[in-house]
Design a protein around this nucleic acid. Structure first.
Lengths: 341, 341
DNA sequence: CGGAATGTTGTAAACGTTTTCAAATACGGT
DNA sequence: ACCGTATTTGAAAACGTTTACAACATTCCG
């Protein structure tokens, strides 16, 4: 037997479908005696409303779509924790859409957003070049968009966002390395499409410049935010004519890749070379040596992003576009040490 | 201006909505001259079909729902890789539903599945007690279900599944510890609701028993598949009157937690105590010492699960219920060493 | 007891699409 | 030019809900 519809429930209970609908959505409105009859019919048929039909009719899905680089990234997973807590408080569900670390084109993302399966979007990935066009379409059907973690290009400055000050944090991290006597500091960035890691690179360069330290050709490399990518970059760094004494990675995952590669080459962290990460994922503390890094308030970012989104959904307006900047924190552990000389 | 509907496109192109629909879904069926006019109208209005309406009308969502313990778990993330590749080949999308490591009740999961938002389900989590009732409902509306990784309770034996032989793998892991001279081997399991880790515990017990090695009271503890949970369990183990010389963890995440705790207590792996994991997540190799563990063919599991699901979707039948058992592999690294004595 | 006010229910329209069926048109062959 | 066939199109129904509106029933008050 196929799934029961509201019609069959109505027939069995001897009422109209409107009454059944009211029993479900607004029980107070229907007489107790009727309600009991309908409840019985629902139980008997095993009826449950067809969500698709509901969404269709209501013009509302009660779904939030989160666009993120990868579900495998522990940092974004922590952000999701915050998002989820707020989203489920509002009785909404989450649909996750991965960009596979930004390899999806803006058009692909746009196509997905356009298909109207969500009432709002949270963008944790840099979608670039991300046309205003896509956002205009989202706005056209009043689907608010909030950006988390990522900074965004100037042309899209009017989209609300929640993130830390990546430039300042990277500067602080680099300063810490410098204050530990390191003069030769390398940087491993993310993909060139990731504006967020560009900001971190900018902070690194600023700190080096301020300390009047040169950045040798070949000290700034692109990992792809992965262990493997960083391993390759690190290997190049170690073979560099002027090898760095410290490596600053744009995320922890890459820092782990570096540490692994350094060990593989028979060197050790931090004795031979210091490594600094970014994000403070849960594996950072567990590493040996434990990873010195910058902590982001991941969960809190998630919460704030979601809160802003729901404000927009509920008021029907895009939230005000002032970016929310949350504090970061340098976490000193064992992977960076004072340069002996 | 709100989002254009098919009606407006039809009006602009001077055709019926049926023709517009055909232009999108079956272009060969419409005359080129007409098609061009319609295309122009689509471009002009920025029209894109309302997916909700399509799903509603078609009675098909083109969505697969994956129920998994946590998106933060690197192992399941790898399984997802396999699932995704197959699913997107079929032009379907994925909706992920987390059980937060099985803290969701079977009723909650059931409610989600029941809401008919997906054409099929992949269960990577042990949902227990998982009533036949829920599955019956899924069957009623012909939504096939395939289980991955998890073994399932006997009563549900007729659901198709894809997984490794967890009992044999755990036996092998334990045998490896024993063959390294370890006689005092502890085991940290997952939550009691996780049948999968029960199987691993069973394998561990079988190997110990076969080697005529006693399992002291307090050697089998419950972590909750997390770093923290394992840390606590490990700490108890280290304070045990008869402390083990090796700890076998039901997953790698917990093995990392153990290694961290052991280090925190001023001991070292593997000199003072050996640690063995399970899953071979990408962090296992990066650890220092690198983690000895059992590798599961995660990606392949994902692919096979998805393939079975689509076979069921396409034929309209539940796939045959023979479980597919994929091979596991012992990965020897550095965290287990021969017991000196 | 009349009527107003309130409470409860049913009818029917609407949401945007796909699809069946029939009608209309084009085309090829004589 | 005409018929038969193939191609192209349109009208209308259907999917399962929610909801505006109207109708009916009940209660309350004077």
């Amino acid at each position: 037997m196929a799934q029961a519809s509201i019609k069959q429930v109505a027939a069995i209970a001897g009422v109209s479908i409107a009454t059944v609908s009211r029993c479900i959505n607004n029980p107070a409105q229907v007489r107790e005696q009727t309600r009991i009859r309908v409840q019985a019919a629902i139980l008997e048929t095993g009826y449950s409303p067809n969500t698709i039909a509901q969404s269709f009719r209501r013009g509302r899905t009660n779904v939030i779509m989160v666009v993120m680089p990868s579900i495998g990234d522990p940092f974004f997973t922590d952000v999701m924790l915050g998002i989820r807590s707020v989203v489920s408080e509002h009785g909404y569900s989450i649909v996750i859409n991965e960009t596979n670390f930004n390899t999806m084109t803006a058009e692909e993302i746009g196509a997905i957003m356009v298909s109207r399966q969500a009432d709002g979007f949270i963008l944790l990935a840099s979608i670039f070049p991300f046309g205003n066009e896509v956002l205009a379409r989202a706005e056209k059907r009043s689907q608010p968009v909030v950006i988390g973690c990522e900074t965004i290009s100037a042309t899209l400055a009017d989209i609300p966002s929640v993130h830390i000050d990546n430039v300042a944090a990277a500067r602080e991290a680099t300063d810490y390395l410098i204050s530990n006597g390191h003069k030769k500091v390398a940087f491993i960035s993310g993909q060139s499409t990731s504006l967020l890691t560009k900001d971190r690179e900018f902070g690194y360069r600023a700190a080096m410049h301020k300390a009047r330290l040169p950045i040798e050709e070949g000290w700034v490399l692109e990992g792809n935010l992965s262990i493997e990518g960083a391993g390759k970059a690190c290997s190049k760094l170690l073979r560099h004519a002027e090898p760095p004494t410290a490596i600053f990675c744009a995320n922890d995952e890459m820092a782990l890749g570096c540490m692994h590669e350094i060990k593989r080459q028979g060197l050790s962290v931090p004795e031979d070379i210091s490594v600094m990460g970014f994000d403070d994922i849960r594996y950072a503390e567990v590493m040996n040596p434990a990873l010195t890094t910058i902590a982001q308030p991941a969960r809190q970012i998630g919460e704030r992003v979601a809160i802003r989104l729901f404000k927009a959904i509920e008021t029907g307006n895009q939230p005000n576009n002032q970016p929310v900047i949350l504090p970061h924190k340098l976490i000193v552990r064992e992977s960076v040490t004072m340069l002996a000389n």
